[in-house]
């Protein structure tokens, strides 16, 4: 479906249809039960997971994330969080594909430094090329640089995911103008990934015309994550509807009353 057809809530990433436009991470929750409850409340269909060394020698019956979020109920999006080179990211996602029985929809992120977690777009482009050649459907985390976003689309990424602000910062959308340029330029879905702090940030992203929003910290570290998950679901829907409805023009001085000018009592 072309993203400019708005008669349906359904949208498509790499041939896979989804209804929810909220994508969520699974980190930073108090426990797996809270993870499950918050994600259920968010209505998200796509959940990101990290790939890490198994704790060898641990209790074999210890519950795992997958027990609480069964892969047949959610679309898993393995990420490359913590990778600073193309090689590490590629290695991680090949392991993820083996782990998830050939599932090839992935989130690529190659980070630039530990202080900012800002994306290293040079390594990201390199990794994306190799992964796409290797059969992966690559959803890519990137900066809000419109030229890089277009290049990532041109080499075959299936979703472009610019940051709103730094990962985990909760600073909201710092450059709506760049996001608008990316939305205008790129034909595959544009998903704001990182930086959302509260519900209005997510609504603004959707009002700008983003196809979706991916978040983790804003929900997981809220005082009540389950209630925040509910708020985010509504804000994504509200923002989307406002975008589709088409907002009124902003007019600084031409005030226009909403009530009739005639029939006033004298």
């Amino acid at each position: 479906m072309d993203k400019h057809e708005f008669n349906s809530n359904e949208w498509v990433i790499a041939g896979r249809p989804f209804q929810s436009r909220l994508l969520v991470g699974t980190g930073k929750y108090r426990d797996f039960k809270e993870t499950r409850l918050a994600i259920e409340k968010s209505g998200a269909q796509i959940v990101t997971v990290a790939i890490r060394r198994t704790n060898i020698g641990q209790d074999a019956n210890e519950p795992s994330l997958l027990d609480f979020l069964p892969p047949d109920q959610f679309t898993y999006l393995p990420n490359t969080a913590g990778c600073y080179t193309a090689d590490d990211a590629i290695r991680t996602l090949r392991l993820a594909r083996e782990l998830l029985d050939g599932h090839n929809l992935v989130k690529l992120e190659v980070l630039g430094d530990q202080k900012t977690l800002y994306p290293n777009v040079v390594e990201t482009l390199e990794a994306a090329k190799i992964l796409i050649k290797d059969g992966f459907d690559v959803m890519v985390y990137t900066s809000d640089d419109p030229i890089i976003a277009k290049q990532l689309e041109d080499i075959g990424c299936c979703a472009i995911m610019p940051l709103a602000s730094l990962i985990g910062s909760g600073m909201g959308i710092l450059n709506p103008w760049n996001l608008e340029i990316i939305i205008d330029t790129v034909k595959v879905p544009v998903i704001v990934d990182a930086g959302v702090g509260t519900a209005s940030d997510a609504a603004i992203a959707m009002e700008l015309g983003c196809d979706g929003v991916l978040m983790n910290t804003a929900i997981a570290t809220a005082k009540d994550p389950i209630l925040m998950a509910s708020a985010m679901k509504k804000s994504i829907e509200a923002g989307r509807e406002a975008f589709l409805a088409g907002r009124m023009d902003k007019k600084l001085y031409s005030a226009s009353p909403s009530s009739p000018m005639s029939g006033l009592i004298k």
Binding site: G25, T26, K28, I51, T54, S64, A81, I167, G168
Partner: peptide, 8 residues
């Protein structure tokens, strides 16, 4: 040997 864990 790797597994899937919570992450964003």
């Amino acid at each position: 040997i790797v597994g899937a864990v919570g992450g964003g």
